[in-house]
Amino acid sequence: MKKSDKPPKSNMVIKEQRAAYVFLIPAFLGLSLITYLPLLAALFVGFTDLTIGHMVRGEAPQFVGLKNFIDIFTNPSIDFFNSILVTVYFALFAVVSSVVYSMFIAILLNRRIPGRAFFRAVFYVPYILPAVATIISWSFLLRFEGGLINYFLVNMGFDRVHFLSSAETVVPSLVMIAVWACGNLIVIFLAGLQNVPRTYMEAAEVDGANFWQRFWKITIPCMTPIIFFNMLMSLVVNLQIVVPALAVTSGGPGKSTMFMTYLMYHYGPRSGQYATASAIAFLFFMIAAILAAVLFITSKNWIFYEGGDDK
């Protein structure tokens, strides 16, 4: 029962509330059923020994406490710690590179250059293509035997590079592909750049500030909220990287692309070890949450807020 601890509400307010709740039914459903409830389920299953065998035999799984959470770190054939390292390494590398690259392209595209609309469209194309299709194309371009990039390298007198087939170069190569596909960030930066107040720029120009000074003193500060937003979005996307491992590298060379999602896929749908997969999933969430929290907390120091806008 609702307790009215606040002054009595008018009819209007109650009507508005009711309307809001009706409008929000889909979000309620989505947040509870397909987001937070499965998260709790992952945590719950992670404490059991559920495998495909239980489901086939119709047996109830046993409660095993923290066993799975300990196992995924101590069992060398799972080695979740390595997965955390390679995923976070990839994700941070990709976030920083994508943000720098897309900011650079957005600034270029924001100038009055011929065919601007066309180029804007071009840079967005990689983002819309199926990742399987593009990773296959990249894997051929980067092939050690007969790849175009290595052909250029040989012709320029360099040694061939193993790109996707050596533990040192595979993550940087995948970062390059991730950067290539980050057209969405460019568009969002473009949106931000158009909102940098004209008056600031003009005032600075009158004061004799050169391009570089204007960039650092006006553009960047005004863009910090957008940079933050893009970093966050890019982080979430890149933490989930899985298609290159599925389609090309199978987690190798070594364990260098044994990304968390791939490991989860391998133990869940691929082998039916659901308890292990759920433990991985839950810890994955914790890691993503921690990284996002770190980003949020540090952001207070570098985000420049123009006015007192509510979040």
Binding site: P76, S77, H162, A167, T249, G252, G254
Partner: peptide
């Protein structure tokens, strides 16, 4: 995953197997 490191010469097969032996056993 691990033998591809022996294939590209960054490690010898002996090194690779030594590294992954516990994982293989597990």
């Amino acid at each position: 995953a691990s033998l591809s490191e022996a294939a590209n010469g960054s490690k010898t097969v002996a090194q690779v197997i030594e590294e992954v032996r516990p994982a293989l056993e597990a």
